[in-house]
Every structure is written in C-alpha cells, then in structure tokens.
C-alpha cells in the first residue's frame, strides 16, 4: 500500500510538471502488483488519472495556462476518437500500434527539443510577470546613501 501511495504522489508531481497524468506509472503498477490484465489496468488507470487531471487542469487554469474552448473541443472530439481507436485496435496488431505511436513520440520529442534549443525564450502568456521595481526617486532618497 505504501508503494501505491508513493506511485500516486509521484504521478501527481509529474502531472504538474510535465502534464503526464500518470497512466505510464499506474498501468505497469497494476499489472505487476495486482496481476491485472492489460485492459483492466488501462481502465482502472484512466479512472485514477481523472482526479489528478481535473485538479491539475484547475490549477493550470488559475495560472492562465488553459484555453478552455480548445480544451473542450479537443476533449469532445477525442471521445469520438476513442471509439475509432478501439475499432482500429481490434483490426491492427498491437505491436504495430506501439511501434507507430512510439516512433511518433520520438520524432515529436526531437522537434520539441530542437525548437527549445534554437528559439529565443518564447513566453506568449507568461504567468508570472514580475512587478516592475519602483522608479528610483531622485534627490529625496534615504539618508546616508
């Protein structure tokens, strides 16, 4: 049970830092420690992700990092995509899907890293604008300076 607690805590921290809601930790843990099958592990993991994603999204929204309309549109379209995904999953060998998505991840990671390396720090909606220091008052400053 302690292990589960640690995994849960770690998943929350990762979700906050990287947006990864925890499935990559929950699914293997459920398979290894609870002897779940792949499908049951995935289903339970999706339910476990829910509170983490909900609170994480709420906090990110507080920092101005969520575009709610886009998020809703993506979420609703994705729900339709789930049905398509399940149909495809039954038609194509699982290994082929893993290779396809795995390769996609690596390509996208390389693109992101390349952009981050060469782009000047892009902060279109920086959440923490530092308050400007008060203009130095000339003449009537503190005595002794």
């Amino acid at each position: 049970m302690i292990v589960y607690l640690v995994i849960g805590l770690l998943a929350g921290l990762l979700a906050g830092l990287t947006g990864l809601a925890g499935g990559m930790l929950f699914i293997p843990a459920l398979i290894v420690f609870e002897d779940f099958g792949q499908v049951e592990a995935q289903a339970t993991s999706l339910a476990a992700i829910l509170p983490v994603a909900l609170v994480g999204a709420w906090r990110q929204w507080g920092y101005g990092n969520v575009r709610p309309r886009d998020a809703l549109q993506l979420g609703l379209l994705a729900v339709g995509g789930v049905a398509g995904g399940v149909a495809v999953a039954n038609a194509i060998p699982e290994r082929a899907l893993e290779i396809t998505f795995g390769t996609l991840m690596l390509v996208v990671a390389a693109q992101l890293a390349w952009r981050a390396r060469r782009a000047p720090e892009p902060q279109p909606r920086a959440p923490e604008p530092k308050p400007r220091p008060p203009a130095p008052s000339h003449g009537r400053g503190r005595a002794g300076g």
Partner: peptide
C-alpha cells in the same frame, strides 16, 4: 465492461491530487 476497480483507482489517484498542486506551482517557476 466492468473493467474498473474503483477502490484501486482512488488509492492511486487521490495522493496525486495533493502533489499535483506542488508540481503545477513548480512548473510556473
């Protein structure tokens, strides 16, 4: 399909609710 173990989902998911606060706050810094 009755594939969700709700008890375990709570055990895994709820601790993360605490640390996700920390993670998001850290990410802003």
């Amino acid at each position: 399909y009755d594939n969700v173990d709700l008890g375990l989902a709570v055990v895994f998911g709820v601790p993360g609710v605490v640390t996700v606060f920390v993670g998001v706050a850290l990410q802003q810094r």
